[in-house]
Amino acid sequence: MELVCPAGSLPALRVAVDSGADAVYMGFKDDTNARHFAGLNFNDRKARQALDYAIDRKVKVFVAINTYAQPKGWKRWQEAVDRAYDLGVNALIVADMGVLEYTCNKYPDLALHLSVQGSATNHEALKFYHQNFGIRRAVLPRVLSLAQVKLAAEKSPVDLEVFGFGSLCIMAEGRCYLSSYVTDESPNTCGACSPAKAVRWEETDLGRESRLNDVLIDRYQEGENAGYPTLCKGRFKVDDHVYNALEEPTSLNTIRLIPELSAAGIKAIKLEGRQRSPAYVEQIVRVWREALDTYAVERDNFTPRGEWLDSLSKVSEGTQTTLGAYSRPWQ
């Protein structure tokens, strides 16, 4: 299975390449990608350097243009596609049908991957994107159980990529408007869930409080790990109970499932975290490289090493890792 790794900056890209990535994915410095944060991502010059570095070392580069084009900014999405083509990237990761159509008409030889934001959960949806836009690969949403992943893989007309590790955003990828509800901006429309300008952290006598556009999202007590200030991961009072009513701040970790994912015919594993630092990228890529290499040798006898799981949970959001929806038998 191909290891697809995040790069939010040139140093992150270099360590991903040096630590064993088969492919890296990155975005440009605007709202055409779902990690649109100030100071992150690549301008033209950095993108060129990134491409050169990766290609020299035979590592593929994918560019995420995976937000939904807004009527006012359509030109920006077109330009992002043109720029990626001119750079000579290996594939684009796209969600929006308008962007998909523009790309497959103008650059029929440029490989298209359907972004997780496209939210294709079954083989009929995959067939649709394949027939209409000629996608070659799709990233499956993190809402699927392992049984559902297997089912989709059985009849999929395209290669499939799944998330292996990272912060969870599993409510309804490509359809989540929780962030819009509080801040007027969401990943699909503006490239950021909980945009930083709406976030306030405050140390108070009651603990560390996080607020999103003045709405209290959570209050962490001494010794409690904090998470990203997204609405889905906040603690709310429901019927006098205060708890993570929607989702807990955890990270997905599917190292244990490597054999099953491989048997299901999954072609690539994606690691999340373009917003994270080079230190994080180095740690997770190194562990996953070792895990995949070990699996290639041990096959049936594969068991995840304790130290892999330790170093992954150290850098996790909430410092807790789960199998996420993969393990939900009821689905």
Binding site: G8, P195, A196, R208, A226, R276, S277
Partner: peptide, 29 residues
């Protein structure tokens, strides 16, 4: 990783989060 330090509350960012994040990202890059 700065986010890890932040999640574990070994670092604190108060005030304009966007400015803090931007500086963090520039440092990372």
């Amino acid at each position: 990783d700065p986010d890890t330090l932040f999640f574990q509350r070994r670092l604190t960012i108060e005030g304009d989060t966007e400015l803090g994040l931007e500086v963090k990202n520039i440092l990372d890059a």
